[in-house]
Design a protein around this nucleic acid. Sequence first.
DNA 1: ATGGCTTGCGCTGCAAGA
Length: 254
Amino acid sequence: MKLATWNVNSLKVRLPHVLQWLEANPIDVLCLQETKLTDDKFPVAELEAAGYQVAFTGQKTYNGVAILSRFPLHDVVKNNPRFADESQRVISATIEGIRVVCAYIPNGQAVGSDKYQYKLRWLDALHDWLADELKSHDQLALLGDYNIAPDDRDVHDPAAWAGSVLVSDPERAEFRRLVDLGFKDAFRLFEQPEKIYSWWDYRMMAFRRNMGLRIDHILLSPMLAARCTGCVIDKLPRKWEQPSDHTPVIAELA
DNA sequence: ATGGCTTGCGCTGCAAGA
């Protein structure tokens, strides 16, 4: 069973990449963020033709999340029922007994801004909701764009980024609070090469210079962590024409 | 050096991303 997450930065633009990537990679469940499509424009037929069932919730211009699955999706829930939010940032479903939560965590814009406060409140609410979800789901995976680099190892230049949004202490504390619920960062369950990232700025030739951050993650409940046999970031799609600025993260379960 | 790209909206530059 392979689970993956990918912030596609517009599914309208990136659908060919998603289809190409799925053709080359045997992924069972793919969580997408920043689809930027209202539900009436979601490419259901194209994805079903590729062998995937879909659950999605979107809005105009911003946000939007989806789960694509080779297996049936049960008990689909949109958003965090504990947090009133106009932004479409969360969708959940049970697939082969696994509760899959796909999340696009707010960016936060700048430390101290209104959007930063919203990010921290949003993460508090996510924490409280998932604490309860874990009581009813032994097998729970939280996949998505967290917009948090949990550790200096996840930052190309920790000195330059120190204290700024995506790496600030309060954001990292929120990430640790999720981990303290019992989750494991799938990527760190395994020995990994250094300087592996999941996002690079479009500007400054950041990708070619590997000026990236690891901000897309797969957190696994203890039972799923015990089943996990590997976790990799596939940076290949970042090299394609007109790429997303993020690249997929994949976890394999036995 | 706070810019640098990319997208959506919609037709003109601007907001937002990270």
